[in-house]
């Protein structure tokens, strides 16, 4: 029973687009950085993502979206987590997201947004700096 705390990250794809290459690449990179990554597949509603985050007791949720619905879906996940008392779960996101939308997402509680072309090393580094294993 040697104590061993690991980061647990949920990588989720909200919304209707079927492009999960990016989510899978990020999931794998985080795994290769020694984290435990829960991957749930496509077409998740914010409610499903929140329920999964709580059952899995994750430290952070990474959302990937290509459909343009980020302004609705990202804040909905943050709000759902807060309603469940899980406001300490860090929410970050990525995908095709116009620069103009990023401040609004930050205001809604999305801690960081990674746009296309971000090296995976940068995402790993950010997660290491900003997410702590809880308990």
């Amino acid at each position: 029973m040697a104590e061993e705390r690991k980061l647990r990250i949920l990588v989720a794809k909200p919304g209707l687009d079927g492009h999960d290459r990016g989510a899978k690449v990020v999931a794998r990179s985080l795994r290769d950085a020694g984290m435990e990554v829960i991957y749930t597949g496509l077409h998740q509603t914010p409610e499903m993502i929140v329920a999964t985050a709580i059952q899995e007791d994750v430290d952070a949720v990474g959302l990937s979206i290509m459909s343009g619905a980020h302004n609705v879906l990202f804040p909905a996940v943050v709000k759902g987590l807060r309603e469940q008392g899980a406001d300490d779960v860090v929410v970050f996101g990525g995908g095709i997201i116009p620069d103009d939308d990023i401040p609004r997402l930050a205001e809604a509680g999305v801690s960081q947004v990674f746009t296309p072309g971000t090296p995976t090393g940068q995402i790993i580094e950010w997660v290491r700096q900003n997410v702590r294993p809880r308990g």
Binding site: K6, A27, R28, L30, R31, D32, A33, G34, M35, E36, V37, I38, Y39, T40, G41, Q44, T45, E47, M48, A51, T52
Partner: peptide, 20 residues
């Protein structure tokens, strides 16, 4: 993964209907 100590946990993908 014995190489990185990380893991991808993907069993839930097949059980999404019950998520909520």
């Amino acid at each position: 993964s014995p190489f990185s100590g990380g893991a991808i946990l993907g069993d839930r993908i097949r059980m999404q209907e019950h998520a909520t």
